[in-house]
Nucleic acid binder design. Structure first.
Lengths: 207, 207
DNA sequence: GTAATAATCACCTGAAAGGGTGATTTTAAG
DNA sequence: CTTAAAATCACCCTTTCAGGTGATTATTAC
């Protein structure tokens, strides 16, 4: 018997998964939560075997919650859950100890398979999620670069449309310095002009 | 008796809404579809009163499908459905004839209220959706500019990091022409350099 | 304390972008 | 058929960007 708990801020999704799982003999509905706090509250006095966790929630998101849960309850398997097929998120979830990732547009069969696989200690990726992850890793060795505070600041100003001289005036620096930071940004992102820089920054949610 | 049909590519969502509505006496489940084509197929021989329509689907998306449905079956009320609270989409759905918009993280009560309101010929916005719409209209006079196919094409290439000469070579145009398009893009977006252009394009999901 | 990183400043050069103006040619829509 | 919009091409000039190289001064980590 696998006790399944779900954290998702969409009642429709909770209801949908509940409904899909309710006739499964080897699956027991442990409970549900609509945000990270109420999830953590639940596990103070209860437990579960597999937690289905939405990636995007108000307040603490799935990525963070995943890390906290794994630290406190390392025996619980976490299965990421999202409508998006965003490689970056999948990667972050996995780095934080999730055992798999499944998209909400998966079939009932796929959902069950994911739960069983994860419960048995395996790793599960729904087809599209796997593709998204691979596509992500291919498309961007991206590895969002480590930016210094100054670089982040200047990146934002560049994105706003300010030129080097304008930025220099704005934050009281030499235009040469601003230009150095700008060039470092290009180097760190591995791109060769501002257009590509801003595009990547946007995709990495840095803006 | 209100016959409700749903179009959504997420089985979990279909199941969830089905489950939420199945005990409502004045609501009848007309059917479901997981994409635009199968939805249009259904309405050839059947009908419904209210259609819950996901905004983001593979192939034709909700915005387009909404327009097609409204043209063919003007008597059917359409209620937009999404996990996102993106003002831009809400606006487009409404422009294409939807009668309202509701987020998937709404409660059962809100869902029922939305269905009834729309069925009675009213307009319904779930709280957050309304806020998102207002926030969108405030934040960006953005009004995503109408771009010609050529402009879209060149915008993408600029975002990829290609320079005017490179783009010219790639699509067999004079560099002067590419530059003209580029300047038109800056004008249409109301920005003064590439950085701001790409940032806006990214925010408007044009990349 | 010392090594590594961040932050700062400087200059040279050529390429690219941005502002302005104007024009011809398709193509689509009425 | 006519009008509007899109697409095409051209050249002026100034600013900004990008590549390369090198250097000094905090700040932080070990």
């Amino acid at each position: 018997m696998i006790r399944v708990f779900i954290v998702d801020d969409h009642p429709v999704v909770i209801e949908g998964i509940h409904s899909l799982l309710q006739n499964e003999k080897d699956i027991e509905w442990a409970g549900q939560a609509m945000n990270a706090a109420s999830c953590l509250g639940f596990f103070v006095n209860h437990t579960a075997d597999v937690v289905l966790m939405d990636i995007s929630m108000p307040g603490m998101d799935g990525v963070e919650l995943c890390a906290v849960m794994q630290e406190k309850y390392p025996g619980i398997f976490i299965l990421g859950l999202s409508t998006f097929n965003q490689g970056l998120y999948i990667k972050k979830m996995m780095e934080n100890g999730a055992s798999g990732y499944i998209l909400k547009n998966s079939s009932k069969e796929e959902l069950l398979k994911a739960i069983h696989t994860v419960h048995d200690g395996g790793i599960f990726f729904s087809g599209e999620a796997g593709e998204a992850l691979i596509a992500y890793q291919k498309s961007s060795k991206a590895e969002l670069p480590e930016l210094s505070p100054r670089e982040k600041e200047i990146l934002l100003l560049i994105a706003e449309g300010y030129t080097n001289p304008q930025i220099a005036e704005k934050i009281f620096l030499s235009p040469f310095t601003v230009d150095s930071h700008r060039k470092n940004l290009l180097a760190k992102f591995g791109v060769k002009n501002t257009a590509a820089l801003i595009k990547m920054a946007a995709q990495l949610q840095l803006l």
